[in-house]
């Protein structure tokens, strides 16, 4: 894959840190978060529950709650720093330039409005279309996401659709105004196994058709392998490894990534839906992260230095990097990957 030129760059997050006001000080939910997504490319944010994936997405879309404090960082999109803009300005880009798909389609749709109204609202409010035109446009979008008999179903309410169909509707809303960036936060987690692949196929097709940049949030290693170009692995509010998905999967530079991959049976792709928690121990409480490398209490390779010094992001070449003191050794050790 040729390296992306800056002109294709869609979203660049640099040094992002987000905290939450809580009793007894702030909880640092994100620290040193940096990644970028190019047009037509998919970047996966991969990590256990609580690692900060959703907070990252919320920071980009100006959806953070009032208790959140962005203490540093920039989010560059369209030549602007979204974090420096007033929230109202960033919101104007939501829907039109950036779309978002949420985890739970059962609750992401407003139960008291017809799906036609909810999708047409985008065209009416954001684009100033008239009622009739907005309805036509809504029908077209519903058709695009593969809901049969679109025109008739405009008048239906969310509870009249199945989970998979509802997620198609959420996707329809996210892509209706043809955004350049699509953020999908665990879009298949709440769905039946049989529907998950269909939804991922739909997202992939829409991405190709619109040349969208996609930020895919997931804890499903199989999904990452199937549809992703690059991956950023998160652990306890930080990115511990990033790079092309093939490189990272073949030669992980971080013991955490290795642990994740080892927890999936050898038949990659067929090994979806495995729990990630076969690594011993639990992620640290964000209010009491360990000194040094935050992963060291769970790391089978931990040395003295890991307990005292925080590892830098080690450049492993070709955009591959890992925050481990022994990243080079990890990658070089052929015995580990026999």
């Amino acid at each position: 894959m040729p390296p992306a030129t800056p002109s294709e760059r869609c979203l660049t997050v640099s040094d992002l840190a987000v905290g939450f006001a809580a009793r007894g000080g702030t909880i640092l939910a994100l620290e040193d978060i940096s990644f970028h997504v190019d047009a037509g490319e998919t970047l996966s944010l991969l990590g256990e529950s609580g690692s900060g994936k959703s907070v990252s997405a919320q920071a980009i879309m100006a959806l953070l709650p009032d208790t959140a404090v962005v203490s540093s960082g920039t989010v560059r999109f369209d030549g602007k720093d979204l974090l420096a803009l007033p929230r109202r300005e960033t919101r104007r880009l939501c829907g039109t330039e950036m779309g978002m798909v949420f985890q739970d389609p059962l609750t992401a749709l407003n139960p008291v409005f017809t799906v036609g109204d909810q999708i047409a609202e985008l065209f009416r409010v954001r684009q100033g279309l008239g009622r009739r035109a907005a309805r036509e446009a809504a029908a077209d979008v519903i058709d695009t996401v593969g809901i049969p008999d679109a025109r008739r179903r405009l008048g239906n309410y969310p509870h009249q659709f199945s989970g998979g169909m509802r997620q198609r509707l959420v996707i329809a809303m996210a892509i209706a105004l043809k955004p350049r960036l699509l953020i999908a936060d665990e879009p298949t987690t709440a769905l039946d196994v049989t529907v998950q692949a269909q939804i991922m196929d739909l997202l992939g097709r829409l991405q190709r058709e619109h040349n969208m940049a996609m930020l895919l949030i997931t804890h499903d290693l199989g999904v990452v392998a199937d549809v992703t170009d690059r991956v950023a692995v998160m652990y306890s509010g930080r990115i511990v490894e990033t790079g092309d998905v093939r490189r990272v999967y073949d030669r992980p530079g971080h013991p955490y990534t290795r642990g994740l991959l080892a927890s999936v049976p050898a038949t990659a792709g067929g090994g979806k839906h495995q729990p990630l928690a076969t690594i011993g121990g639990l992620p640290p409480n964000p209010q009491r992260r360990p000194q040094g490398c935050t992963f060291h209490p769970r790391c089978p390779f931990a040395q003295d230095i890991c307990r005292t010094e925080r590892p830098p992001m080690v450049d492993l070449g070709n955009g591959h990097g890992a925050t481990c003191h022994f990243a080079r050794e990890m990658v070089a050790d052929d015995r580990l990957f026999a």
């Binding site: 879309m61 978002m100 609750t107 954001r126």
Partner: peptide, 21 residues
């Protein structure tokens, strides 16, 4: 509720998010 976040992600103004949804 999550559908409020959906409404915000659609880029609707806060008045509409609160007043309608």
């Amino acid at each position: 509720e999550p559908y409020i976040q959906t409404a915000r992600a659609k880029g609707l103004g806060e008045t509409r998010v609160v007043g309608v949804h």
